[in-house]
Design a protein around this nucleic acid. Structure first.
Length: 265
DNA sequence: CTTATCGGCCA
DNA sequence: TGGCCGATAAG
């Protein structure tokens, strides 16, 4: 029948478009347009499609019925402006990436963002290393001061202790800042954490700080410290294992109880 | 239960 | 009028 799904060049590879004509009822002759993702999921409206694609594809100019990009829709976007801003201000749902984004900074006015989607003549940056490396504030670790992990009742969980021999550098080098700084350093890079190896950094960190390293003096890790850590990990795994088996037993018991009730009922 | 199809609301 | 999505029949 009229069941042919056609490729849709305006969408990423693998997406298919289908148009079916209504053959009965009051609306006979009208047609419905559907899209199919590469995985086969069916989409029957532009909002639904936009929700799924998110920021991956900008559908602002996409015409759902024809399946083509319509650059002429830019004018309509300007009209949408007030609309979208009002919707967002009223707490209505933004219709995702067809809505222009609203600046998130604190202001009593909703300030729209100028959205630039094409830069003629620009080359795409492929240097990922450079892209990942963001400028950071000197002593940015200070912002982590006072952060504590807590459970859902907001009860502060047991904090961690730092091994002796670790010393902070820079202003406000309290233990919690130091701990956060080192934990962050371990998470943000796979490079070795050595601390500040330059003696000058100790005297005037604002100038001589090695910003690729956390705010602590250089240190040595002893075999004993490593063994202590191994023991902690081992114990943590043990208690996790116990908790998991206990949970599994409890579930099994509950299931068999339900089965029995089902039989007698 | 899932899927296809048409009705009908709303801008 | 057409887009969008709920309702409902069909599988």
């Amino acid at each position: 029948m009229e069941r042919k799904k056609t490729d849709c060049p305006a969408l990423p590879p693998g997406w298919k478009k289908e148009e079916v004509i209504r053959k009965s009822g009051l609306s006979a002759g009208k047609s419905d347009v559907y899209y199919y993702s590469p995985t086969g999921k069916k989409f029957r409206s532009k909002p639904q499609l936009a929700r799924y694609l998110g920021n991956a594809v900008d559908l602002a100019c996409f015409d759902f019925r024809t399946g083509k990009m319509m650059p002429g829709k830019l004018q309509k976007n300007k009209q949408r402006f007030r609309h979208d801003a009002q919707n967002l201000a009223k707490g209505g749902k933004p219709d995702l990436n067809t809505a222009l984004p609203i600046r998130q900074t604190a202001s009593i006015f909703k300030q729209p963002v100028t959205k630039v989607t094409s830069h003629p003549g620009n080359k795409v940056k492929t240097d990922l290393q450079r892209a990942v490396e963001q400028p950071r504030q000197l002593f940015w670790e200070k912002r982590l001061m006072g952060l504590r992990s807590s459970d859902i009742t907001e009860q502060v969980l047991r904090s961690m202790d730092l091994p002796k021999g670790l010393q902070g550098i820079g202003p406000d080098s309290e233990d919690d800042v130091l701990l956060s700084a080192i934990a962050s350093a371990l998470h943000m890079s796979s490079a070795p954490i050595t601390g500040q190896t330059s003696a000058a950094a100790e005297k005037n960190p604002a100038i001589w700080l090695n910003t690729t390293q956390p705010l602590c003096k250089t240190f040595t890790v002893t075999d004993e410290q490593i063994r202590d850590q191994e023991l902690k990990v081992f114990q943590a795994r043990r208690s996790l294992e116990e908790a998991l088996t206990a949970d599994g037993l409890a579930r099994a018991a509950e299931n068999s109880r339900e089965l029995l009730q089902g039989k007698t009922a």
